[in-house]
Design a binder for these strands. Structure first.
Lengths: 109, 109
DNA sequence: TATAATGTTCGCAAACCTACGAACAATTTT
DNA sequence: AAAATTGTTCGTAGGTTTGCGAACATTATA
């Protein structure tokens, strides 16, 4: 499994994009970015979905390295993983800063 | 259908992220960015997957507005949709330029 | 020790994604 | 007209995602 058909940066970028590829997860990131306290319950309140589903989305973001969680019983505190956030920012930055060939859309307009 | 549970920018960003959430599709975008000629066949050659699958990925990117295709029988020419590319760039830019609360990772060490 | 509060995990259903080969459509070449 | 070229669409298989409620684990409170 996990065979690598594409270059590592491409794989990583795709993985992060995938993690961000759901509105609930974008909403979570936006919420975490502006929050100081960030308990699970606060996040759940913000979203129109069941807590089990919120938990799943949080797992996905954690899996991708974009956030981290810490148990503070009985609550769980979440926040953005700043190091990886910066890396993601850089990867997406490079990606969107690619120089495009040809100034117009002449090839397919 | 298509009920809107999240704000439109969040939905749009998620949709674009989702479209970019596969290494083959990232690879396609990178390839198109540096190509002048961009026929289906050229793209297919570049990727380790069957042409039916390539066609599907291209559809997904087109659906998301990131690329466009034009029939030039018997070939099909693809290229990046620059207008939407710029918009995507802006959306991701805004997203990653969000100001994060707190300078450290104190909330979750 | 029971009860409440907070989240995670489980089990399930429905939908969606990824990949492929085969069949197809449209033109071009022979 | 037959054959080749170029891609798309179809059908199918297997896997993944999304969503939920219910059950669970853990600590805090009564």
């Amino acid at each position: 499994m996990t065979e690598k058909k594409y270059c590592i940066k491409t794989e990583t970028l795709a993985q992060m994009a995938k993690a961000l590829g759901h509105p609930a997860r974008i909403a979570i990131m936006k919420f975490l970015a502006k929050q100081d306290t960030c308990y699970f319950g606060d996040i759940h309140e913000e979203l129109p979905i069941a807590k089990a589903t919120v938990s799943q989305h949080l797992s996905a973001l954690k899996e991708a390295g974009l956030i981290q969680g810490e148990i503070e019983t009985p609550k769980v505190r979440y926040c953005i993983n700043k190091e990886n956030w910066e890396y993601a920012k850089q990867l997406f930055g490079e990606f969107f800063d690619m120089e495009l060939q040809k100034g117009d859309n002449s090839c397919c307009y």
